[in-house]
Design a protein around this nucleic acid. Structure first.
Lengths: 239, 239
DNA sequence: CCAAAAGTGTTGCCCTTACACCCATGT
DNA sequence: ACATGGGTGTAAGGGCAACACTTTTGG
């Protein structure tokens, strides 16, 4: 095998979730192409780099933050996951961004598949300003319910990422990863309602969350609303 | 990139579960090496082959059966997942079995990592006689509680595979995949007790399973035991 | 008739859900 | 005072676990 800095036929892509304005959002790059086409933040993996470290690297590049909740959710390797059209687009990008990686074609100039490992990350929307890199025309948050036209099978990756988030958000109590340091129970409720796309009756939801005994009650939050001020909470320090 | 028949730095490995004699078993190959060392059934992926199809191919080679329950459970790509010693063993095997795949070393003759995708399969123990292939000294069932010395991070892959099986067996009602066509509720109970390594009180367990309404009651099973004969069941045809 | 194991029935507990009510806040 | 939304309390229902009991089988 020819020596390459990166693994040739393997990439990773990140579904970076944020929560804002009762909407579940994720970071997408608009690629610098004649056509309006978007992509998940991702990239090749360095030969001497653990895959999860590569995902952290991508995340840091795009969000500027570290110590983010991050988990793999599956591999995507259908032979036809890259359409001929997308393949042409991809080749031009890959050539500039990863000069060490030769275009994935065989000697007959047929495209070769690239397998991608999907990661999802949970970040505090307020703390993250999406950063564009080299070949992005822009990089920003997009509502998961209003996704633009995406390259490869990234649409499918997002769907699977959301599915896995739905499985794990409650089971693993990940909600704090998508919220600021302090938050109200209403915030948590709205997050749940957004992720699961169904209502959670407020009183019972509060009980459920408080009975977990993972939250610490802080001062009230006076917003100026003409209603009772809700308590702020934060995650109990794991001691 | 040099054209190869297989993807160079990506493999898949299968944890093929079977249930027999109240034990959870899986298929391992003993490799043809001076040392006693075992490996999960696996292999490289053909360029024009979907990854899941590659897993099915490996499964068919090893079990002779098709239409097996099969699911991905994670990727394994730590840079140090292959020890130096295992790397030497692997190179000699790979050279013979996959002549098109060059040994995973760079120009300085340093080993390069290979990433593996983990699949687990659920099969009927009675129907499967493990088949050895080219470089196996033998291929057989092994109790998951008494695993021999395994190559690479296959130990870790088995652990993760079991973890995922435990998550999904009940939630997805996969138990029939590990049992013969007809079985008693006691069989199901013992399967659960084995997979979760804890007792399930018989009466409540029966109720739980029957309440699912997925089983069809057949004749009784007369074994000659001096006790009441249990009913046999089979999965209701999904109509 | 007896022992062993299969299968059924009943009760109590906990968790979730639904409904009713009280409390703080700004106008 | 009152409208608004936050927060608490209570009762009903479903699911699960523990226990007691009946049924079938071969000796």
């Amino acid at each position: 095998m020819k020596s390459t800095k990166h693994i040739a036929q393997l990439t990773l892509d990140c579904v970076i979730f944020g929560f804002h304005d009762k909407k579940l959002k994720l970071i997408l790059s608009k690629l610098k192409l004649e056509k309006d086409i978007f992509a998940l933040p991702g990239g090749f993996i360095l030969q001497e780099e653990d895959i999860e470290d590569a995902a952290k690297r991508v995340l840091y590049e795009r969000t500027g933050i570290q110590d983010v909740y991050l988990e793999e959710f599956g591999t995507f390797g259908r032979t036809n996951r890259i359409s001929d059209e997308d393949f042409l687009l991809f080749s031009s990008i890959a050539r500039d961004l990863y000069p060490d990686v030769e275009p994935p074609v065989n000697e007959n100039n047929q495209k070769m598949r690239i397998v991608s490992i999907g990661y999802y990350a949970l970040v505090d929307f307020e703390k993250v300003i999406p950063q564009k890199i080299d070949l992005d025309e822009s990089c920003d948050w997009y509502d998961i319910k209003e996704l633009p036209n995406m390259i490869f099978d990234h649409q499918e990756m997002v769907a699977k990422g959301l599915e896995v988030l739905q499985e794990r958000l409650d089971k693993k109590l990940l909600f704090n990863n998508l919220l600021p340091e302090t938050f109200t129970l209403k915030d948590v409720q709205e997050l749940y309602e957004t992720v699961y796309d169904k209502p959670f009756p407020a009183n019972n939801f509060q009980k459920k969350i408080l009975d977990l005994n993972v939250l610490e009650r802080l001062d009230k939050k006076y917003t100026g609303a003409k209603s009772k001020a809700p308590y702020l909470y934060r995650l109990k320090s794991k001691s």
